[in-house]
Amino acid sequence: MRLLGIDAAYEPDGDDSSLATRSATEQRELLTLDRGLLFRRNVHDGALIRTDDVDAQLDDILSRFAPRLAPWTRCLRCGALLEEVSATEVAAQLEPGTARTYRSFSRYTGCGRVYWRGAHSRRLEALVRRATS
C-alpha cells in the first residue's frame, strides 16, 4: 500500500491491544484477518480482510475504500514521504556504481534513506499499473 502512496502503518508483531490503541490514537482504519480484534472497544474503525492472498487483499482494499493513490511517494519501510535531493547531498550514502549510474535521487523524510528509481523499481511497476488502472 505504501508503494501506492497510501499512508499505511504496519505492525506485524503488534498484539491486539497495541493495534487497537494505535487505531484509536491515530484515527486509523484497522485492516485485519482477525474478526475478534475488530470488536475491541477502542478500535477507531476497521475492516475484515477476507483472504490471505496479498494480491487479492490489495484488490479488495482498493475496491472497498477507493483510496487516493500517489505511487512512488512513500518509503516502503517507514511510510514517510519522499523529498527530492541533489546527488551531491546524498553522495556519501551511495555506492560508487550507483553514483555513476543514476542522477535523480530522493530522500525519505522519516528514516533518511536515499531512493532512486533503479532496476528494483521495474518489478514493482506492474503492480502500480494494475492498481492504478
Rank of each mutant, 00 (worst) to 15 (best):
A91T: 12
S23G: 07
R40C: 00
Y10N: 05
S106A: 15
A47G: 13
D60G: 14
T25Q: 13
R100C: 01
G79A: 10
A20K: 03
S23C: 09
E29T: 13
V43H: 02
G5F: 03
D55L: 11
S23A: 06
Q93C: 08
P12W: 07
L37D: 00
A91K: 15
C111S: 07
V128D: 06
R35Y: 11
R129I: 08
L30K: 07
T109V: 14
P71Y: 03
G110R: 05
M1Y: 01
E11Q: 15
L76K: 05
S23P: 02
A70S: 11
G97E: 12
L69G: 06
R64E: 12
C75E: 00
A70Q: 11
S63L: 04
A126N: 09
V54D: 01
L94D: 02
R100S: 08
R2G: 10
Y102V: 05
A8E: 03
A20G: 04
G46P: 00
R68Q: 14
P67V: 06
S106H: 14
G79H: 08
L76G: 10
A80I: 02
D15G: 09
G5Y: 02
R64W: 07
I61P: 00
R130H: 12
A87Q: 12
T88G: 10
I6F: 01
D13R: 13
P96R: 15
R40M: 06
L124Y: 03
R77F: 06
L38K: 02
A99S: 12
S121R: 13
M1L: 10
V85Q: 07
Y108M: 13
L81A: 08
L31P: 00
R28F: 04
D52T: 06
F105Q: 01
L94E: 03
T88A: 15
G5E: 06
T32P: 03
G97Q: 13
E84T: 14
P71M: 07
A131Q: 09
G46Y: 01
F65S: 07
Y115S: 06
N42L: 01
E11T: 12
A92L: 14
P71T: 04
R40E: 01
F39V: 02
A56W: 05
T109K: 12
T109L: 13
D60I: 14
F39C: 00
W116F: 13
D13S: 11
L30C: 07
C75G: 00
F65E: 05
E26G: 10
Q93Y: 04
R22L: 15
G112W: 03
T101H: 11
R107F: 09
R64F: 08
D59T: 14
V85I: 10
L58E: 02
D45K: 11
C111P: 05
L82I: 07
S23F: 05
D53N: 13
L38P: 00
A70M: 06
A119L: 09
D60A: 15
L3W: 03
Y102L: 08
L3D: 00
R50T: 13
W72E: 02
D60W: 15
G112T: 05
N42H: 04
P67T: 04
L94F: 05
T51A: 01
F65H: 15
P71V: 07
I61L: 08
T51W: 01
A66E: 12
R103Q: 14
I6G: 03
P12T: 07
T73S: 10
F105A: 05
Y108E: 11
D53K: 10
